[in-house]
């Protein structure tokens, strides 16, 4: 069998065509933008009128998302988690999935560490926000913008 390597030009053509199709499958993290109203309403429903300060919360999402159906998400909060100084609740919101809430967790001093992980869906590029409510009533937050695009080689219809 006569076999030959494909030329470099051909490889570039294949790659170039795909990149040119605008279907880059990358998620990158940029500084946050303002969040839409629906998300603000959901935030108020969760924490009331408390002022939200930036800091003490760390929201972690991977630098590259291979599929928006399942994105690892970890939130951790700086707190001694003592009987009087602890994190009461952590809420995660998104601005563009059809619903602004992602997950809300309640914890207390017995947690030992104010952190949790889950896997979330990201239908589109958007801002994700995490807000922690402390025992003293203060609220702290972190947010990041994520960019999600699409995968290759998938099914034509939903099963």
């Amino acid at each position: 069998m006569a076999r030959s390597r494909r030329s470099r030009r051909e490889i570039l053509q294949i790659a170039g065509a795909l990149v040119g199709s605008g279907m880059a499958l990358r998620l990158s993290i940029r500084p946050a933008r303002a969040t839409p109203e629906m998300m603000q309403d959901a935030v108020r429903a969760a924490i009331g009128e408390a002022a939200v300060k930036k800091g003490r919360v760390k929201l972690d999402l991977p630098p590259i998302v291979e599929n928006g159906n399942s994105v690892p998400c970890t939130v951790s909060v700086e707190s001694p988690m003592t009987a009087t100084d602890y994190v009461k609740a952590i809420h995660v919101f998104n601005e563009k999935n059809p619903q602004p809430n992602v997950i809300s967790v309640k914890l207390g001093p017995r947690a030992g560490r104010a952190a949790f992980s889950t896997r979330i869906r990201l239908a589109d590029s958007q801002t994700i926000t995490a807000i922690a409510e402390m025992a003293d009533g203060t609220c702290w937050s972190d947010d990041i913008d994520v960019i999600v695009t699409l995968a290759a080689c998938i099914e034509e219809s939903i099963h």
Partner: peptide
Amino acid sequence: RTGAIFAALVAAAPVAAR
């Protein structure tokens, strides 16, 4: 979306080689 990605390859379909 599948179609969109792969369709982009049409224009670039290289000459046959094993």
